[in-house]
Amino acid sequence: HHGLLKDFTLILDDADDYNVIIQVGENQNIKEFRAHSVILRARSLYFKSALSSNWVTKKDNMIIFSKPNLTPIIFDMVLRYIYTGELDLTEQSGENILNLLVASDELLLEELFIHVQNY
């Protein structure tokens, strides 16, 4: 699956056909992530609901989603995990890991939660 993994990372980093903009963080610590609703909804129940036609808000045909209670660092890891199913935690600080654990619980990313917990 190595090729697949690389390609999905590429989709995330070089997104040119994204349709979701996710604003993450509060105050000064804000970052916009670009993503694909199809991947988010396929990989996460949270996003499946959040980005469903019942709830979605659009601006210029772009889905805008805001997640203020997470930091960009944490959300970057979440997003990476959603796209690739893998996450390297070795470089991460203890605090980040703890926050990632909390975030994965909130977003009901069970696999990630177990992955982090085991780590």
Binding site: S49, N54, W55, T57
Partner: peptide, 12 residues
């Protein structure tokens, strides 16, 4: 009237 509601907020 759901269009005025924020999923993220309510979920949270």
């Amino acid at each position: 009237n759901a269009s005025i509601l924020s999923f993220e907020e309510l979920y949270r």
